[in-house]
Design a protein around this nucleic acid. Sequence first.
DNA 1: TGGAATGTTCGGCT
DNA 2: AAGCCGAACATTCC
Length: 256
Amino acid sequence: MPELPEVATVIRTVETHLLGRRLIEVRCFTKKSWARSTRRAAGQLIHEVRRYGKFILIGLDDGLLAIHLGMTGKLLAGAERGAYTRAVLVLDTGEVLFDDVRQFGSVRWLRQAPGHLGPDALEISAEEFAGRLRTRKARLKALLLNQAFLRGLGNIYADESLFRAGVHPLAIAARLSPKRALKLHKAIREVLFDAIAKGGSSISDYVDANGSQGSFQTEHRVYQRTGEPCLSCGAPIRRILVAQRATHYCPKCQRV
DNA sequence: TGGAATGTTCGGCT
DNA sequence: AAGCCGAACATTCC
C-alpha cells in the first residue's frame, strides 16, 4: 500500500493528531525487538512528523520513531484496536494505531534518519537524476525500485512513471539519452504530485489515518491493466517480471 | 490449490 | 563489483 504518495497522505492526515503531543509509550504486540527499541521513545514530546522516502519519521526530544508501512501497514487515528493492530502510539490525548496485516512494516526508535537511501524522488534535480542514471548499467525498472538509488518510488509509480515518459522498463539506465532522462524525471514528478493530490492509490486496502481511501487508482494507465488497451495507442498492456516484481507497460508506446 | 499482492533484505552466483 | 536471482518474512484473496 505505501509508496511516496500514500506515505505523504498518511502524514498529512496523522500529523494533526501527533504534533505537540506527548508520547506516553509505544505498545508493541508482535516483535520483541520493536518493544526494546521503542522504549526509548516513552515520555517524549513530538516535535515533527516528516516523510523520508517511504519512512514516516516522528521527531522526538531525543531521536525519532521510524515507521515503515511495508506492504499493508496503516496508521489510524481514533480507531478501535483490532486483530491486526501490531503497535499503539499511546499519546496524552489518545491513541494512534499501527495496523499491518502482512507484518512487513516496522516501528523502531532511531537516533537519526535511516542511512544508505538515495535522494528523494521529489527533491532530486533533473540534472542530478540524469547524472546518476549515466553511471548505472541496470534496467530502469529495477533501478527505480532501488531505494538506495532513489527513495520513494515503488511498483505502482515506477510503472506509471515509465509509461508517461515513454520509456521501456528494461531499458538500460546508462543508455538513456539525456532528453529521455529529463522526460523520465518530469514524468516521475508529475505522477507523484498528481497521486498526492488524489490522496494516493487505494488498491486493496490502503487508507489514510482517518480511514479514507485515495482515488489515484482510477488514473493508473498501466499498473494492473494487463491485456487492457493502452489509453494512448490501444495496444494491449503487457505484464512481465523485472526484479521479481510485476511490471506493466505498453509495447508500442514504450521503447527500449 | 497455487499464485499474486503497494516492500525490504540477504546470500549466492556471474 | 555491479547487478541479478531466488528465497524469506506473513496473510489474504481469488
